[in-house]
Design a protein around this nucleic acid. Structure first.
Lengths: 113, 113
DNA sequence: TTTCTATCCATAGACAAACTATGGTTCGGC
DNA sequence: GCCGAACCATAGTTTGTCTATGGATAGAAA
């Protein structure tokens, strides 16, 4: 019950920014990409994705522009800004630090106080 | 801004259960242990800890009893139940699966659709 | 003996993030 | 003409964590 959802809370912005680092993408494509690259483990619901993109826009970490997709549709393409690239670096290092710390707790078998 | 807090959301139950797997402990001791073992990276606030312990009690994953500490104080000791041990296993494997998936996204440099 | 710090418990309210549910448009296949 | 997939987006709920409180007691320091 600690997490019933489709992804680890607190990692969505990280995943989006990282995905956009590869190439600009529209929302739907971002969700597809994360799902595909993670082998269907991580599913980003639209109700999570679009609010997240709004946050990222407000922070100035991504910018958006309307374009036409290869399949001839209107779509909003999001691009990582310089600030977003910097932020991504910060989030990755913070994330890795946390992972290392959690790893220490999980690895900790026995120890005297 | 993805996470301003002291730990990764969704990992608290996991950390508590794992800590109790080593030995029964009171709330204060759980927080100290996590902080110490994680080299001060993970700090569990009391306002997060006690609600979490209530959740775990309700789920039947831990049980509690009042005892006297080594320092001669009243304290509620929490013990992992059999169900809790099972749950811990589940949460660890789910967590590791997520970590692997996030790792794939972060490692993904370039790829054609 | 008063005071302070550390040890311990616990809850209420605020806040942010993610989910459910919903509603809409357009393209292409049937 | 219909339907599914590709796209956008928001409102409202839920859940988890944090902030802010509040209280009690042991032991050290003053």
């Amino acid at each position: 019950m600690a997490n019933k959802g489709d992804l680890l809370p607190g990692t969505l912005d990280l995943l989006i920014l990282q995905t956009l680092k590869r190439a600009p993408l529209h929302g739907y494509g971002i969700a597809q990409s994360i799902k595909r690259v993670s082998d269907d483990v991580l599913t980003v619901e639209e109700g999570s994705l679009y609010p997240a993109l709004q946050r990222l826009l407000l922070q100035g970490w991504v910018k958006a522009e309307w374009k036409i997709t290869e399949t001839n549709r209107r779509a909003r393409y999001y691009t990582l800004t310089a600030a977003g690239r910097k932020q991504l670096g910060l989030e990755i290092s913070k994330f890795e630090q946390m992972m290392a710390a959690i790893g220490r707790v999980l690895a900790d078998a026995e120890e005297a106080g």
